[in-house]
Design a protein around this nucleic acid. Structure first.
Lengths: 202, 202
DNA sequence: AAATTTAACTAACACTTGTTAGTTTACGTT
DNA sequence: AACGTAAACTAACAAGTGTTAGTTAAATTT
């Protein structure tokens, strides 16, 4: 675990074959519609036009599909935030970058984001690793807010409430983005920054 | 359906017996932890110290539990918003009332709110009714925002983005409220109003 | 005291679940 | 032409699923 190999990082050392990736993509769509527990291996197979047993030529078991979806996304967020932490700008600017990070990752993988948000509790082997990543992420995020308060860039309200409010919105993007066709992600990100940072009150 | 009877409204004419309510409450807790599909009738029974078959002395089937949880909450929101729409105040004041509405209902029923958010797609008989309630709610909410923009109380940004941002935060309250012990709901509501309406930027 | 109701039980059902074993088919390489 | 491999198949499994039928014991009503 956590071996760097090629352009793969952390806990996902093996790059999946194209067929395996098709299974994961198909499963993601179904997981988003009904949730992990309500989707059967036969559902996934049927959506691909094959039989359930055939899936096992490509994957170890059902859990592996969920694990891949969730961990690869979680690691994208961790890595993205790492860059932002190290960037040399104001805290408000860092928050804008975080918003862009969420809009970017989510718009590229709306289905997977549903599992990340709703099905993480069904992880087994990697549950603790996932929880660690999530806590680390939230802590880094909160740290940026706190520093912004200290420097006078950000209002002196309870940082937890600000964190919760922003993160809730960003975590819900996966529901909202697919509803809007012809979506310009950079416009969305800047509109969100406006609303989340400066509020709606005139 | 939709018969007013005593203090029961809309699509839930029958008030459940105390034992039935215990089942629903127990189920809510489990549904929050693992989601509706991953919770079995045997899980619910075990949590109550009885056998699965005994549940059927009190409820029609598994679906009825989920339906009760979701529809009764959805109707609380619809009724609460109805009062707010009819109140004679500014749009900003109406938004504050909506925030209070969410904090109130959610803090009284955090478990049920998990199902409302994540398990509605497993409704059968009442799925269309639920979807209608949700669309009505969002439309009324959006209308208040649009009127606020017209009257110059609210910034002239895309109302959908403001709606999405506020509603995402309010819908995530069920995750956040149980994590904070000794929570004063009126303090939370006013802090949320501050953040959601006026932003975090100084 | 007898009759009814409530709410638990045991046992079983038909069906679905994830998964394995063994087989077949098609295709690229030797 | 023979071989090896990838990826599909059929058949089956053990365990778990929601639910029903019939029974029992206690509490309540008549």
């Amino acid at each position: 675990m956590k071996i760097k190999k090629g352009n793969e990082y952390l806990a996902l050392p093996m790059k999946p074959t194209p067929r395996k990736l098709e299974i994961i993509t198909t499963a993601s769509t179904l997981f988003k519609e009904k949730g992990y527990s309500a989707v059967t291996m036969r559902d996934i197979a049927k959506a691909m036009g094959i039989k359930a047993a055939s899936l096992y030529n490509h994957i170890k078991n059902k859990e592996e599909i969920l694990t891949f979806i969730i961990i690869s996304l979680a690691e994208q967020f961790i890595e993205g935030l790492e860059d932002i932490k190290n960037s040399n700008t104001t805290c408000i600017e860092k928050l804008k970058k975080i918003i862009e990070l969420h809009v970017g990752i989510t718009s590229r993988n709306t289905n997977g984001m549903a599992s990340l948000n709703n099905d993480w509790m069904h992880l087994k082997d990697q549950l603790n690793y996932y929880l660690k990543l999530r806590i680390d992420y939230e802590n880094s995020f909160r740290k940026i807010i706190k520093e912004g308060v200290k420097k006078g860039e950000i209002k002196n309200i309870n940082p937890d409430i600000m964190l919760f409010s922003i993160l809730s919105t960003l975590r819900s993007l996966y529901i909202w983005i697919p509803q809007k066709e012809d979506l310009d992600t950079s416009v969305l990100a800047s509109n969100l920054s406006e609303v989340l940072l400066k509020g709606i009150n005139k």
